[in-house]
């Protein structure tokens, strides 16, 4: 008993290694068996409570991570749909990077669960959940890539659009433009005399643009949008005299140029 008291009086750290009960010192002691048993039980209780505490900390961490994950996923899903339905390229969503970091942690957890129990339902659910998140991330990137390819010339010519791209996307856009120009030149443009190409440059909308510039984002295209915030009294650009009360969950079919600013403010989502 004295040992227990002495231990408690010394105020040792709460975490006690279970192996401590089997140290040489313990077995060599001259105490009665009963005392030893009591000591053993007490130590085990301390450990159990500590394990529970650690588990609780782990669980709360996982819960926090899951909350962040679902929040970021929602942001990325919205960004993907906005990107899909808008005609111009939108600013790069940083939620992608954050989601990627969380996903890596979740992947490690799913792998360890799958290794311990091949048919564990939680492990399988985590796997499929990971795959769904990866699907959204992939679709977002592929949508942006397709848009960059489609409007590559107008994006490179416009500094505002270029600022919306991430660094790898910028590099991709520049390389892709070079590749396309090279391909067109080698396929058919090299045969033509320079004069005929110059004539065409002048005739395109009266301004001198390169021949490759054909596709521009059509800002007058009609889009479906839903308000995710209460905006209040607002007049669209094309109808400046008509004021409308715009509240949350209202859905509209409007010109893209009318809601460009609202999309930047994250007041609406495209559907």
């Amino acid at each position: 008993m004295s040992r227990i008291f002495s231990r408690q009086n010394q105020k040792e750290p709460k975490t006690i290694n279970l192996n401590a009960a089997y140290t040489k010192e313990f077995f060599d002691s001259d105490e009665d068996l009963d005392v030893e048993d009591e000591f053993n039980v007490d130590e085990f209780n301390i450990n159990e409570s500590n394990i529970n505490k650690e588990n609780n900390v782990d669980e709360s961490n996982i819960n926090k991570e899951n909350e962040i994950l679902s929040g970021q996923l929602k942001i990325l899903q919205r960004a993907w749909l906005n990107e899909n339905f808008s005609t111009e390229i939108l600013p790069y969503e940083p939620a992608f990077e954050r989601l990627n970091e969380i996903l890596e942690n979740q992947n490690i957890r799913a792998e360890s669960l799958a290794l311990s129990q091949e048919t564990s339902p939680i492990g399988m659910l985590l796997f499929i959940d990971n795959e769904r998140i990866k699907y959204v991330m992939n679709r977002y990137k592929r949508t942006r890539l397709a848009k960059i390819e489609k409007y590559v010339c107008s994006i490179i010519e416009n500094a505002e659009y270029m600022a919306r791209l991430s660094l790898p996307e910028k590099e991709f856009a520049e390389r892709y433009k070079r590749l396309i120009e090279e391909h067109e030149h080698a396929s058919f443009l090299h045969v033509l005399p320079q004069e005929s190409l110059d004539v065409l440059k002048e005739t395109e909308n009266g301004t001198e643009t390169s021949f490759a510039t054909v596709e521009h984002p059509d800002l007058n295209q009609a889009v479906f949008c839903r308000f995710i915030k209460h905006v209040g009294s607002y007049s669209f650009l094309s109808t400046p005299h008509d004021k409308e009360i715009l509240s949350k969950d209202d859905a509209y079919l409007v010109k893209y140029s009318d809601i460009q600013k609202l999309l930047e403010d994250h007041s609406i989502e495209l559907i």
């Binding site: 990627n100 996903l103 890596e104 992947n107 399988m124 796997f127 499929i128 795959e131 769904r132 990866k134 699907y135 991330m137 992939n138 679709r139 990137k141 592929r142 890539l145 660094l167 790898p168 590099e171 991709f172 390389r175 892709y176 590749l179």
Partner: peptide, 25 residues
């Protein structure tokens, strides 16, 4: 060009994956 772009892509993601929503693991 795609190969170079993939070098910057997160290793856990596959850019060339089929774009079909996953239903089962």
């Amino acid at each position: 060009l795609l190969r170079k772009y993939k070098c910057e892509y997160p290793p856990s993601l596959n850019l060339s994956a089929t774009l079909v929503p996953p239903k089962e693991a």
